[in-house]
Design a protein around this nucleic acid. Structure first.
Length: 475
RNA sequence: GGCGCCGUCGCCAAGUGGUAAGGCAGAGCUCUGCAAAAGCUCCAUCCCCGGUUCAAAUCCGGGCGGCGCCUCCA
């Protein structure tokens, strides 16, 4: 599988460094608010990476995705709410888990919280190692990383500091630092704030240290195989993670760096801009559902754009994704109507061809958009085969199996199926009404038949008459 | 100001040297009690101007336009 590596700014062939186990770290959510659909774009993209590695490349994956549950915002918001920090952030962790499940994310092996005791301890160890190796200094009770001690600092972000915009804010910390680019590892305790002391003095973690410490604690000897996150993390977060991890261990931190582009939002004629909590232009999954869309459609929308390109989110795009996904599920439902007859070798050929095409595009830096194109080509060809009466039940089974394999990577069809199993009207009631309507139609009482159809329609259930039977589906 | 990305049909979007995937919408047709739904068919020469090449949406140069990072952020 070829993967774009931010470190080298090029696509490289990826394979795990040892035992066919991919050791992957993904930067997760800072839990002071519910994750928005921009956050989840990144999480879905890394989920596709995980699925491609497991189900297509045949690797085992050991993935860590953290929760940042201590920083300025979490502390501030928890204080405003009058709730202890750990409890406050716990609420948003629960919300994340629900949203993640609704979007079909595979559970990852580890979901550490920064404030777990063993992680605070690990941070203390990492900082102690940095102190021992002379990469730090203390000032006003805080501990800083001294970047002048690390010659290749900046290799990931490749920023030219000489050309930085004059007047640009280089530092948002109020603490004393020797060099503007130095960053804090451990912040001195302030009155009223939570505090820990893992043997390096009382304080709380700086932003970057948790990821270095948790990755090194949970994923074994560096370098790990893949480190992933949104593009906005390249600098300073990931650059500083590299500095900390490589400074503490003397070894490379991660072989591959994978970054997902932003989701952009367009508001009423205004130019698109990135969705972020600080800009206040956020939608979360609940907003999408409240607009009448299903999480599976959002996942499909994510899949329709390559992960390294900006995705301009709009409600129109959402509606188009919904329709496109419907074409896929309609096709799958149609397979059930295929009659028994001898298997058609042409179908098997088609499936093999599509399987090769699909795998090729996924292997090509996770080109899910192109992979979907292959699937739609296949759908059209197979629909024609069904129209011509040249597909049998054995073929249909093979088709379903092929789609199952595609969906192991995409994770959208099974998600849709799960939603369909929980329709807005109870299944027994739908089936009862379909029977009643069938009786009305046989009696040529079309007014009653149409009334039942209309009633279900307004409640979100669509009836489709095919021959002598009637099928229902969610709108 | 520095670094970088992007500009493909009405909308969304693949393709990055060999003559434009796919989806949505639209049009026509099939099916149907009428519908709905579904299916099939049709539907672009790639922001502009130069250049390189037998050949460019794809490479180079110059414009115009959009976005990101440089500061908390997925």
């Amino acid at each position: 599988m070829r993967l774009y590596n931010t470190l080298t700014r090029s696509e490289e062939e990826f394979a795990p460094s040892q035992d066919n186990i991919v050791r992957m770290y993904t930067c997760g959510l800072t839990v002071y608010a519910r994750g928005h659909i921009g956050n989840f774009r990144t999480f879905v993209a890394t989920d596709v990476l995980r699925r491609a590695l497991r189900h297509q490349a045949g690797c085992e994956v050991r993935q860590v995705m953290n929760f940042t549950d201590v920083d300025d915002r979490t502390i501030l918001e928890s204080q405003k709410a009058g709730v202890p920090l750990r409890e406050y952030t716990g609420r948003y962790i629960d919300a994340f888990r629900r949203d993640a499940a609704a979007l079909g994310l595979e559970p990852v092996e580890e979901n550490p919280r920064a404030t777990d005791d063993e992680n605070i301890t690990a941070m203390g160890r990492t900082i102690a190692a940095l102190e021992e190796r002379g990469h730090t200094y203390r000032s006003d009770g805080s501990i800083y990383f001294k970047i002048s001690t690390l010659p290749d600092y900046g290799k990931l972000a490749r920023l030219d500091h000489a050309g930085m915009k004059s007047g640009a804010r280089i530092d948002s910390d109020r603490y004393e630092k020797e060099d503007a680019r130095d960053f804090v590892l451990w912040k001195a305790t302030k009155p009223g704030e939570p505090t820990w002391d893992p043997g390096i003095g009382a304080g709380r973690p700086g932003w970057h240290i948790e990821c270095s410490a948790m990755a090194l604690r949970l994923l074994g000897e560096p370098p790990i195989d893949i480190h992933a996150g949104g593009v906005d993390l390249i600098f300073p977060h990931h650059e500083n993670e590299i500095a900390q991890s490589e400074g503490a261990t003397g070894r490379p931190f991660s072989r591959f760096w994978v970054h997902v582009e932003h989701l952009m939002i367009e508001d009423e004629g205004k130019a698109a801009e990135k969705m972020s909590k600080s800009l206040g232009n956020v939608y979360n999954l609940q907003d999408v559902v409240d607009r009448g869309f299903r999480p599976s459609a959002l996942r499909y929308l994510y899949l329709g754009v390559h992960y390294r390109k900006q995705l301009r989110f709009s409600w129109t795009a959402m509606a188009q994704a919904e329709e496109a996904l419907k074409r896929l599920t309609d096709f799958l439902a149609r397979l059930d109507t295929v009659p028994g007859r001898a298997a058609n070798p042409v179908v098997a050929e088609r499936l093999a061809e599509a399987t090769r095409g699909f795998a090729g595009h996924i292997d090509d830096d996770l080109n899910t958009a192109a992979a979907l194109g292959v699937i739609f080509d296949l759908v059209r060809a197979l629909n024609s085969t069904i129209d011509a009466g040249e597909m049998g039940t054995d073929d249909a089974r093979a088709v379903r199996e092929t789609f199952e394999r595609f969906d192991k990577v995409l994770g959208v069809l099974a998600l849709r199926r799960g939603e369909d199993e929980r329709p807005p009207v109870p299944v027994e009631e739908i089936e009862h009404l379909i029977a009643a309507r069938r009786a009305a139609r046989l009696a040529r009482n079309f007014a009653e038949a149409d009334r039942i159809r209309q009633d279900l329609d307004t409640r979100g259930i669509l009836l489709e008459d095919t021959g002598s039977t009637t099928r229902w589906k969610r709108k």
